[in-house]
Structures are given as C-alpha cells and as structure tokens.
Design a protein around this nucleic acid. Structure first.
Lengths: 66, 66
DNA sequence: TTCGGATGTTATGTTTGTATAACATTGTGT
DNA sequence: ACACAATGTTATACAAACATAACATCCGAA
C-alpha cells in the first residue's frame, strides 16, 4: 500500500527518528512504512496523519485502492 | 476507537455476515469492530469505507482523535 | 577525507488483529 | 409460543504489526 509519509516528513523537515517519537513508535517502524514493508494499523495511520495536519485518506492515497 | 460501521450498515440494509463477506473477513470481526473491541488494520478500514462509498476518516471519526 | 547524523537492514520476541468453531442471546414474523 | 434469522460471546490458533538491539550504508559538513 503506497503512502506519502516520506514526502510529508520532508515537507515538515522531520527525521524518521523525530516522527517516530512524535507518534510513539520506533524509528524502524517508520522506515518499514515508508518502504512499504507493511501497512500500519488504523491507529498509527491516524496519529501520523494528525502530525502532518492531513487525513488518513490523503496520506495513504486510499482512493487508489486498499 | 469509535466508528459508524453499524450506522452505515443499517443505511445499506446489510447484515454483519453480508458485510463480512463483502470485505473478506469473518462475521465475528465485524462484531468486534462495531463493539469497539479492537480497531482494524488500515487495509480492512479502507475496504469497509469503500463498500459504503465513504472515507476512512469519515467512517472512523478520525477528527475525534486516534 | 573523515566524522557523525540520518537512513536502511536483519534477527528475534511481543502484541494485536483476524480466523475458526461452537454455543448463547436477541429479535421478529407467524 | 415457536421457529429462525441476526447478533453476541468465548476459547484457541495463526498472521501481521510493532518492539528491541545490533549492525550496515549513505551523505553532508568540517
């Protein structure tokens, strides 16, 4: 499942470690999400979208499919 | 995490079993989601929103928090 | 060029979402 | 009251998300 985490993270000037800390997960988890190794729980997806002031649907391109 | 699955399901006149079949999970999973026993994966959340022609953010009231 | 921060990887363990089956309860039409 | 569909529950097992630690690579500044 594709997403725009890296793009938004760059826009906000955050490192993976900083984002991880902000949403309460490990940095490796952010790496795996950005690399598409697995898709997040809805809870985590929501926390990340909140940090970036956007919606889950927008951040994870849900109109492209699930 | 609150959601409007039951409300949308009623609006579409679907049983829990029918919705479960449409999104490829067991009926018990739908029961647990409606009852709030756990929150879904983003993948499942997206499939359910798709069936109801709405967004994940709207269906799971994500503006209320994660 | 070298050093350090940022990013990527791999292995192993824990937690949580989901499957499965069996049974209980509620509700509704007849 | 009865039958049956819909909904709810519980126990056990499995898969996927996430934690943790250790190490590897990449890249920009001094």
């Amino acid at each position: 499942m594709r997403n725009r985490i890296r793009e938004y993270r760059a826009r906000y000037g955050l490192t993976q470690a900083e984002l991880a800390r902000l949403v309460g997960v490990r940095r490796e988890t952010i790496v795996f999400l950005e690399k598409g190794r697995y898709s997040p729980s809805l809870r985590l997806a929501c926390r990340i979208a909140k940090v970036f002031g956007t919606t889950v649907d927008e951040l994870f391109l849900l109109q492209e499919g699930c």
